[in-house]
Simulated assay, not measured.
Amino acid sequence: MAGTGRRVANVAFAVIGALLAVAVGWVLFVRIPGDLAELLGVLLAVAVGLLGLRIAGNLADSVAPTHNVAEVAVEGPISRDGGGGLTSPPMGAEADDVVEQIEQADADGGSEALLLKLNTPGGEIVPSEDIRIAAERFDGPTVAYATDVCASGGYDIAAGCDELWAREGTLVGSIGVIGSRVNAADLADRLGLSYEQFTAGEYKDAGTPLQELDPDERAYLQGLVDDYYEQFVETVAEGRDLSPEAIEDTEARVYLGEEAHEIGLVDEIGTRRDVEERLEEQIGEPVEVREYEPERGLAGRLRGGAQRVAFALGAGVAAAVSGDVDGLSFRR
């Protein structure tokens, strides 16, 4: 009943706002200009009415929200800009957009709890951490619900939530770090290509694909991977209330949901309905969910269109290796 009352109040507020906007538009564009401007005035009045409806609807959702739980999804590989390939548009979870959605939900007075839906194999390290930090800062209960996959960077995000739920068949874990590089030195030799680069600093070009790694460079790059792994283990240990040793013992394996639950990587096994029932217990009333999606203005839409054109033309090589360090890619 509470949800129905909020919806009725929301609709009433929006209708009143729209009628007021139409009345103002009618006075400004029909009554004042005179007969010659009536047609244009009517059109302008309708336009003002539609604008008023939109504004009133937004205000109504703030004054009498129809929801009490905000849902934000993290789906696909995690990166700063959504990833993509040479001939495909960006895809996957765009970290900045996800963070913005969580912050909007937190600022929204109607969002008493956050439901973070996870279906991701992980991705770039810092973007994953940004999403986790945003979830930690949400003012209210936060429940992560893993559907198909919650691995690596996805599990990093889950560690920032109060609870993690999964299905029996969900793949969970992969608490590790991978550093990779393409070794094209032999290919360059066969093609008669030689590598020459001018650098300042002994390890500035460590990991460059066109030259073999020497033992010192390999140890240096492995050290970076080890440092990232140590940070990851500490984050999960603190967020999931587990010992670092227990996390290290997983050796970055993935587990099915039931086994992940048995070893403490997951709090509960259940369906989406079970998760909503848990949220009802936490907020003390029936759950009404609002799904948050990226809000893109004109500039964002134009930028997204330009990206798609670039990918379609086979451009975007720089974007394909964005976040890499001299040819070495770090991922969770």
Rank of each mutant, 00 (worst) to 15 (best):
D186T: 05
D267K: 03
A95V: 08
G176Y: 11
A37T: 12
L298K: 04
A166V: 08
V11Q: 00
Q222G: 06
R278T: 06
E288I: 01
A14G: 06
N58W: 15
G3I: 15
D216H: 11
L224S: 12
I55M: 12
R54H: 06
L114G: 08
D324K: 03
G85E: 13
P244N: 05
E94K: 14
A318E: 05
Y195E: 14
T170H: 03
A146L: 10
A184D: 13
E238G: 10
Y155D: 10
L28S: 04
R253K: 08
G5N: 07
N58G: 11
R290G: 14
Y229A: 13
G84V: 06
V321S: 14
A135W: 03
R303M: 12
P77S: 14
E285H: 00
E75H: 12
E295M: 04
V143A: 03
E112Y: 00
A315F: 07
V27I: 13
L193A: 10
T4A: 14
F311T: 14
I78L: 02
P141H: 02
E288M: 09
E71S: 15
V182T: 11
V27K: 10
S322Y: 04
L20Q: 05
M1S: 13
D97E: 14
G140T: 01
A312W: 09
L115P: 00
I175K: 07
L242N: 08
L302S: 06
G264R: 00
P141S: 06
A21Q: 14
E276G: 01
L210D: 12
P77Q: 12
L36H: 14
L118C: 04
V321I: 10
S322R: 07
V177R: 01
G192T: 11
T170L: 13
E248R: 15
E100F: 05
L36W: 15
Y220P: 01
R308L: 03
A237R: 02
A134M: 02
F138S: 09
G316P: 03
L59N: 04
A315M: 12
E38W: 07
L221P: 01
V275G: 02
A146H: 09
R190P: 08
R303A: 14
V287Q: 03
V48M: 14
R253E: 15
V233M: 02
Q282N: 05
S111C: 02
W26M: 03
G160N: 08
G239L: 00
D274A: 15
E281V: 12
A188L: 07
R273T: 15
V172I: 13
A18L: 11
G239Q: 09
G109L: 04
S180P: 09
P141L: 05
P215H: 03
V172H: 04
N10G: 08
G239F: 07
T4R: 10
A105C: 09
E75I: 09
A12L: 10
L210G: 15
G323M: 07
T87M: 15
A64L: 05
I247A: 00
E71T: 13
L53P: 00
L114H: 12
T235Y: 04
L40F: 11
A21V: 12
G179Q: 11
S174L: 06
